[in-house]
Amino acid sequence: MSKSVLIVNRKAPYGSSAPREALDVALTCGVFEQPVSLLFLGDAVFQLLKAQQPDAIGQKNLASNLSALPMYDIDQLFVCAESLANNGLDPDDLILPVTLLEKDSVAPLFANHDVVLTF
């Protein structure tokens, strides 16, 4: 039995432990051979920014960990288009290819997954 898992990211990369904990859950579910998708909403779009330099604040680079997701067969990455635009970002600013979602496509994404975990 397998269940699809949607990991919903809502927080900026280094203000809390949530992004790293979300990533650990994504990788664990991947190991359990569950289909995993990630959605980035609100400030979480900053998690995907290129050229992060967190060593200046003693943190590990989240973007380089996220960029390893395709190696774990996790390549369903969704980004809220409005969140990206509101933060003045563009898909070219992101480390991985993503699917942009308009606001009214977010609810169907939730509905299409068996399990939704929010971080």
Binding site: V8, A18, V25, T28, V31, F32, Q34, V116
Partner: peptide, 21 residues
Amino acid sequence: SGLGQLAEATLVSDRVITFGG
């Protein structure tokens, strides 16, 4: 225990509810 316990819980539960996410 490890995160595998969370993954396993998602597999066998009808509903997984998060608090504080």
